[in-house]
Design a protein around this nucleic acid. Structure first.
Length: 591
DNA sequence: AGTCCTCACCGG
DNA sequence: AACTCCGGTGAGGACT
């Protein structure tokens, strides 16, 4: 028998502002699965995650969810399958548990990334049977809302089977290296899926007329079947400079043209061209910039992706192995700065643009627990200035280069000299990334703070236990060694992998934090009864669209969410997570 | 005709 | 000063 929860208790739980795995046992949870024809099967769940009552069949999925406002967490196979239908009916949920997303995270944690992640595959592994491969990823359909709707059937997994998979997943969380963090990871990744679906539905306000103005200014008139006027003119200039017809969009042709002019180049990248003294260089660089705008964010992009004043990218939380999001079509995470003029708030509304300040060093401080770096990151002011005051005699540029070099695995240049200074003052911080690099070079796995795990090295095959991460890299980083870690013996591939794992633990832990930020902000906006909506997210930056009078409240909510996310993700540390914020009518006016 | 690869740009 | 980490995107061209 399911314990009856008093209303007051449920309301009090909702007032807590973050999906918090520590409350998992208290949450009222139900499982739901859509069925063909718009209905749904539902079941209440007990504390053990097993069904605590009979499976109910209801004719309307959205009504079934709407009529159970006390449910705190909905367990379902796939947010992408269920949530767009709910949103279309005006139903939002507080929290969910996405079984397929959990499967992906757990497989990764177990060193089995790459095995199929579908509920059907998880069930097959559980019962013993042939494991079906995952269906191929769908390409996004520009401007089509329906691209987010998956068919509700054909997964071959009944609600009862789904709950068996779920119960096993809960047990696998218990067996994780840090079970509480792993539960938090699944919970926040699920929250990210809710945010992604909601942002797709809201859309980013986009003024097609302004976009066309920008294109006309930059590119000139469109010529039917050819380049726009400005590109055609630049092609003529380039050709004139070489004394022969040149196609600037063909790198081999450009290399040949320079060879003919007595200049040998190995590529036509902008930074290499910029070093050459030749009259074709300036128009070539201009051409490249405009060509990019034309092909990736020009008129056809506008036609494909903007409908009714909104750009609705299909976000994919956890789309990269490090946990950063990707988008499927539309290039939403690569909107050129010049095009951001077209992102304009509705009449009487504003865009609150908030950018997290110096994410990498703050996250490195939090995960490494380096006392000196935590102190430097314990203020809202410019972190690189504070860092340079402490270890680089006030030279901010050197401080920044040293830190980014440590995080990216810089291989040459001034960074190495500066790295030594960094290592002396912040031994735990540098050891943390050095250990991650060493693990990568040796073919071991590394994890983010919450437990997202790097993929096995390519070609490592089934090496079983050998691929599992060492017990606790952070604990081994006791500092005090002065030489640091030098990857002198490793192969080029191994070194590349070391740079990847070195970066992974920082970038991925930053992504952990960002998920908690989104979850906290989403909850805060919703509880505040605001009309404000999250409309954009890009790694360390959010945009909220809101009535002008709500803007200052939203700014405060973002700052509070950042600090809360820091505490929930990393525990109590002195590290602060400040934002640069701007309240603007146009995205391009922020920074 | 469809698929895969390289190139170069965009963003963080 | 150099071009290190993570990705998406489109065009052109080589390939099947």
């Amino acid at each position: 028998m399911r314990p009856v929860t008093p209303r007051g208790g449920a309301a009090r739980r909702r007032a807590l502002s973050v999906p918090d795995a520590r409350l998992e046992g208290m949450s009222e949870r139900w499982a739901v699965a859509p069925v063909e024809g718009g209905g749904a099967l539902l079941a209440p769940l007990g504390r053990d995650g097993r069904a605590a009552g009979p499976v109910l069949a209801e004719p309307d999925l959205a009504e079934a969810v709407r009529s159970r406002p006390d449910v705190v967490r909905w367990v379902w196979r796939s947010t992408t399958e269920v949530y767009p239908r709910l949103l279309a009916a005006g139903v939002r949920v507080e929290r969910c548990y996405d079984v397929e997303c959990a499967e992906q995270l757990l497989l990764g944690h177990e060193g089995r990334l790459g095995e199929p992640r579908s509920a059907a595959a998880a069930l097959a592994r559980l019962r013993g049977g042939p494991v079906p491969p995952d269906p191929p990823a769908r390409g996004a359909e520009p401007g089509s809302q329906s691209s987010l709707f998956e068919p509700p059937s054909g997964t071959g997994v009944s609600l009862e089977d789904l709950l068996d998979v779920y119960a096993e997943q809960l047990a696998r969380h218990d067996r994780a290296e840090h079970p509480d963090r792993m539960r938090l990871l699944t919970s926040s990744e699920s929250a990210g899926l809710l945010v992604a679906a909601e942002m797709h539905r809201s859309g980013l306000p986009w003024r097609a007329d302004v976009h066309r103005e920008v294109l006309a200014e930059l590119l000139g008139e469109r010529y039917a079947g050819g380049e726009p006027r400005r590109l055609a003119e630049l092609t003529d200039e380039i050709s004139a400079a070489f004394g022969r017809r040149v196609r600037p969009d063909l790198p081999v042709d450009v290399v040949k043209a320079f060879a003919g002019a007595g200049v040998r180049i190995t590529s036509t990248r902008r930074w290499e061209l910029a070093e050459i003294d030749h009259p074709a260089v300036e128009p070539l660089i201009a051409y490249k910039k405009l060509y990019r705008i034309w092909t990736a964010h020009g008129w056809s992009w506008l036609q494909d992706w903007v409908r009714d004043g909104r750009f609705r990218p299909e976000y994919q939380p956890g789309g990269t192995v490090s946990g950063r999001w990707t988008t499927n079509g539309g290039g939403a995470l690569q909107i050129p700065k010049v095009i951001r003029r077209a992102v304009v708030a509705d009449e009487g509304w504003r865009l609150v643009v908030a950018d997290a300040d110096q994410m990498e060093p703050r996250v490195l401080a939090a995960v490494s627990r380096d006392r000196g770096l935590m102190e430097v990151a314990g203020h809202d002011g410019d972190l690189y200035t504070a860092l340079s005051d402490r270890a680089f005699e006030g030279d901010r540029d050197h401080a920044k280069i040293a830190l980014l070099g440590a995080v990216y695995g810089q291989t040459s240049g001034d960074g190495l000299k500066n790295l030594a200074a960094l290592r002396r003052r912040f031994p735990l911080a540098v050891a943390y990334v050095d250990d991650a690099a060493k693990a990568g070079e040796e073919g071991r796995l590394v994890r983010t703070w919450l437990g997202r795990t790097s993929p096995p090295a390519a070609g490592s095959g089934d090496q079983g236990e050998a691929g599992l991460p060492q017990e606790d890299a952070a604990q081994d980083a006791t500092g005090g060694r002065d030489g640091g870690y030098t990857p002198g013996y490793a192969s080029s591939d191994a070194r590349a992998r070391g740079r990847f794992t070195r970066n992974f633990v920082v970038q991925g832990s930053a992504a952990d934090w960002a998920l908690l930020l989104l979850a906290a902000l989403r909850r805060s906006l919703s509880e505040g009864g605001l009309r404000a909506e999250l409309v954009f997210f890009q790694h360390d930056e959010v945009i909220v669209h809101c009535p002008a009078e709500e803007a200052e409240t939203v700014v405060s909510a973002i700052r509070a969410a950042g600090e809360l996310a820091g505490r929930i993700t990393f525990g109590e540390t002195p590290v602060r997570f400040p934002f640069t914020t701007a309240v603007v009518e146009r995205y391009s006016d922020a920074k």
